[in-house]
Structure formats: C-alpha cells, structure tokens
Write a protein that binds this DNA or RNA. Structure first.
Lengths: 163, 163
DNA sequence: ACGAGATCGTCAACCTCCTTGCCTATTTTG
DNA sequence: CAAAATAGGCAAGGAGGTTGACGATCTCGT
C-alpha cells in the first residue's frame, strides 16, 4: 500500500482521480440525470430517481412495505412516504394483504408498469451508448465485476450484522 | 434491443438485476458506508461523505469556492454551506484571495489534511478488498472502463450545454 | 387459551443537503 | 468610467431521509 502520509500534494491529487468510489459516484450521477432527462423527453413529467427505484423494486404480485424498505435500504417510514408520494402520482396502489391483517401490498398500476417498462428501455438505451464507447467485452466484464463486488460485500454485511 | 413491453414479469425482474445503474448505485453506497464506518473506527468522529468529497476537492494551494462548487456539481450556495460546515469542524480555513478581492481561498488545515490522507488510505484498503474478489486485471479494467464512460459523458454534456 | 413480545404501518418532529431568489462587493469590459 | 459579469453570502424552502412513539395485528411459549 502506498504511504499516503509521505505523498506530495500532486501525488495525492493523482491518486484521487483513480479512486474507484469517485468514478462510481460520478458515472451513477450522470446516468441517473440522463435517465430522468429522457423520461421527461418521453412525456413522463415530474419523475425522479426515487420513483424509478421504487417502481423497480415492486413485484407484480405486490410487495409489502417493509420489504420495499429493506430492498431500498431505508427505514419503513421513509418507504411509506415514498410510496405515498408515487401513489398520489398514480403509479402504485395499496391493497390489504390477504395473509396478514397488519400488512398491505403495494402494486403497480397500469401507468406505473408502463413507466417502469419505459425506464428499463431507456436505461438499456443509455447503457448501449456506454457499450459503444468501451466495447462489448468490457461492458460485460463491468457488469460481472460490479456484481461480484456487490455479492461479496453483501455477504460480509450479513456476517457483520446477524439478524 | 429487447422489447420490454412484451416481457413477462419474471423477465423484467431478471433484466432489472443486470441494469448497470443499479449496480453502480449499490456498490457506491456500500463503499461509502464502509468508508465512513472505518473513519469512525479510526477515531475521526462525526464525518460523512460530503466532508471527504469536499476535502478531496481542495487543492493544497487553496481552492476558490466557485471552483469547489463546479467540481462538486452544486450551486455556490451549497458549496458555501458545506465549507462553512467543515470549517466549524476545523478541517478547512478560508483566506482572502490575493489576486481577487471578491474571492477567497479555501485551504486544508493540518487536521483536514490528516483526515484526507487517512480517508485515501482507507479507500485504498477497501478497494484492495474488492481486488481480492475480482482479481487485479478485472479491477484495472473496471477503473479504465468507468473512466472512459465518465470522459465520454462529460464530453457529451459539454457539447449539449455550451457555456 | 392467552398474555408477552415481535412485527407492520403510520404520525410527528427533525436533520441534512441542496435548491431558488435576492443581495453586496469587486473585477472586467466596451 | 459606467455596464455587465463574477465571487460570495443570507434567507426561505423543498426533497428525502432520520428517530421516536404509537395502535393494530400476528406469533409463540406456557
């Protein structure tokens, strides 16, 4: 490992640029902004990343709020607020859970499903643009590498916090 | 391109998992959380991602507020608030710019520099963990691919909004 | 059968980060 | 030099999360 405390300012600057985290955040932000722009252009007014993320995490048979919260990595309260938000916009609806009187199922509406399908298509379009830049092989390896890292860190997190 | 409107729910679910954006966000979030945890463990109390990002975007000779805002992709006001925040914590200080009476230079304090050096070392440590999972070659290609994508999208953005 | 405790969802209050709108001081420009 | 651009700051507010407390319901050990 480099001895950072002995690095010159220029060396620190150079190193900074190669930090993976910086690249991840940058590309994720750019792609998100691009997606939202394209959704607007496609006639889906006033949608944001949270909406897409949420829609993408709802199963066709309906998903419980607490499960949505878990998938999104936020509290139940935050998930509840987000669902309330996109419910107002008509993309999801709530229904009582037949198996559990405490719970509800959140489901896509027709409009929500249409939006999700459009969003997936636009993401695919954007990512094909990336593939054109780095090549098909590199793109495939990018997905594979990130998947492996995600799996490994998830496994580590599961060990770290049992329960 | 797949015809998403004809996909079954299961196919949509399967596709969802391979969307690059999802992977990017997930890995970025995990690494960020890991970094903050390690900084806490290393005795740097009450630091967050914004602090590290900000410290990493300040040059040794001092950086103007407006330049910080540009690098972070936020408004001057937001940058000003963040600088005010970490100034209170003692990581940066402001000084008048000798070349421009309107401007100020934001500089690291000793403590800020120490924090940045630690943060870089910890990111390096985390990312070596990733390298152990996916291999040295894949890690190098990951950085290269993301860099290329970032450069390409930056160039496109520059064309789109001249000025 | 039933009381203790866990779980599902919600309301309310608050925090962080970032925005828009407006303002002053200074520099640059025609 | 006046006009316009630029550096920065103050105030108000929105978006998206948090913690804490709560009622309703389910689950489990006895």
């Amino acid at each position: 490992m480099p001895d950072f405390s002995e690095m010159t300012p220029d060396q620190i600057r150079a190193h900074r640029e190669t930090v993976l985290l910086r690249l991840l955040i940058r590309v994720a932000q750019t792609e998100t902004a691009d997606l939202v722009d394209r959704l607007h252009a496609a006639g889906h007014g006033r949608v944001n990343r949270a909406h897409i993320t949420l829609l993408g995490n709802i199963d066709t048979e309906g998903t419980r709020l607490v499960e949505i919260a878990r998938r999104l990595g936020v509290t139940r309260q935050a998930a509840s607020q987000m669902v309330g938000d996109i419910e107002k916009r008509g993309f999801v609806e709530r229904a009582a859970d037949p198996d559990d009187g405490r719970a509800q199922r959140v489901r896509h509406t027709q409009a929500g499903r249409a939006m999700l399908v459009d969003a997936l298509a636009l993401m695919h379009e954007i990512e094909q643009g990336y593939e054109a830049v780095i090549g098909k092989r590199a793109m495939a390896q990018l997905r594979t590498s990130l998947s492996k890292i995600a799996q490994a860190t998830d496994a580590a997190a599961a060990l770290g916090s049992p329960g």
